[in-house]
Nucleic acid binder design. Structure first.
Lengths: 229, 229
DNA sequence: CCGAAATTGTCACCGCCACGACGAACAGCG
DNA sequence: CGCTGTTCGTCGTGGCGGTGACAATTTCGG
């Protein structure tokens, strides 16, 4: 196996959780790779739409994807995911239409797993099924925790929380205030006010389409999780 | 196989989703039944507690269980489940401590699956693993949808929603107004006001520790899902 | 360099709901 | 039957945050 191919498999392995938990058998990853193919998406285009027939799942390799649900009035952003996330698998396994829409925010490269090819494969290789089980449950549980952490809290607390979540390694959050408002289901004005308060206290810096986290501890305090992690 | 035993297996099968989707092989259910045993819980006692070591999962056969998470201040009710629900499996599979606490509201009979005995079994019988995957994802997805339906809505809408969810076959909800408030993370007074409004409009009747749904359609309208199901 | 579009910063207004408080109605028990 | 704890009904008061409106600033294409 050449280096590029090996790295590809390694990446696929990371996407499915802890490798030390239940080691994959040799050939498992190659088999999984054979059950699908790569797709590229431009910013603004959809990987899948709510209500559409769920014929496959996607493993995001590069870029950022926004998951949202449309409601009678407006839309609710369920989450944002980056490389390593597996999306659309829930609907695919259930055989129901997609629960949410997935839109590419940046240029996205993803590995699309075909339902038809995947199911026989999983029966043949139970380890992958179990690993997927664990990974799928973990991800859903994480979003659920996130939602619970945000419920019934002031906008200020929510903003602090989401800034900690979304900050890149440099402590920067590249989102417009409108996007932040969208993500939290709050109004842009409230977001602005919350950011202003944090800016005055010196915990962040704001710019055009960017927020820089200067003091993460101070933010954690604002978010109300200074004591309990 | 005698009748009682057959019914037991049939119940276990229902708990793990649609049987027509991926038919269980003969012996699968018997094997699953051998991986655990029954436990009985009195009202108010815990099946497991948040942070406790997750050594097993529970399949609720009878009674009602409340799932909640304790926070820095107070607690948040994550959900209520009845017969057929599988709980504690997420933490068990991940090998992490339990994410939430599970308390018996009524007398509860549940089937406890042992982690140690279950994992080898799943590797041996992949069908069960896949079925579990589907069932687990479905349940988590359902709670997530419920939370999203409740987010950023008025107390009135939320109350209408939860009444439709929790009503028994006779259209009765046996919960005190405090419990409803707890379930929604709202104050008891607001619940009372919302119920009063619905009572005046003739869609419900209220009593001591009970709410009777008289006009479900009217409630659905209040909940804001008159048009879209 | 200039104008359009997007984004940010601020303001006043107002509705919803948490909080505290209090009395009335109800269930259970000695 | 009377006592006690629980639950229900209903007030103010105050604050958070949504809405609409408008100016200032930044980005980007021509």
């Amino acid at each position: 196996m050449d280096t590029a191919e090996y790295q590809h498999f390694a990446w696929l392995a990371r996407s499915f959780g802890r490798t030390d938990y239940l080691p994959l058998a040799p050939g498992d990853l190659e088999a999984l790779a054979a059950a699908g193919s790569y797709v590229d998406k431009y910013p603004g285009t959809h990987l899948f739409k709510e209500g559409g027939e769920s014929t496959g799942a996607f493993v995001v390799e590069r870029g950022e994807v926004e998951l949202y649900r449309t409601r009678t009035v407006g839309r609710r952003v369920v989450g944002r995911v980056r490389s390593g996330a597996v999306i659309g698998d829930i609907a695919m396994f259930q055989g129901h239409p997609y629960i949410s829409s997935a839109k590419a925010i940046t240029a996205v490269r993803a590995f699309r797993l075909e339902r038809n090819r995947l199911l026989p494969l999983l029966i043949e290789r139970p380890i992958i099924a179990i690993r997927w089980l664990v990974a799928g449950l973990s991800q859903l549980e994480a979003t659920q925790q996130r939602v619970i952490r945000l419920m019934h809290r002031t906008v200020r607390e929510q903003v602090a929380e989401v800034l900690l979540d979304e900050a890149d390694p440099f402590g920067e959050v590249h989102l417009s205030q409108s996007s932040l408002a969208d993500l939290l289901g709050a109004s842009r004005q409230s977001i602005n006010e919350a950011l202003a308060a944090m800016r005055h206290s010196g915990s962040i810096e704001t710019g055009y389409r960017v927020v820089r986290v200067l003091d993460a501890d101070k933010l954690r305090f604002v978010a109300g999780r200074s004591v309990d992690p």
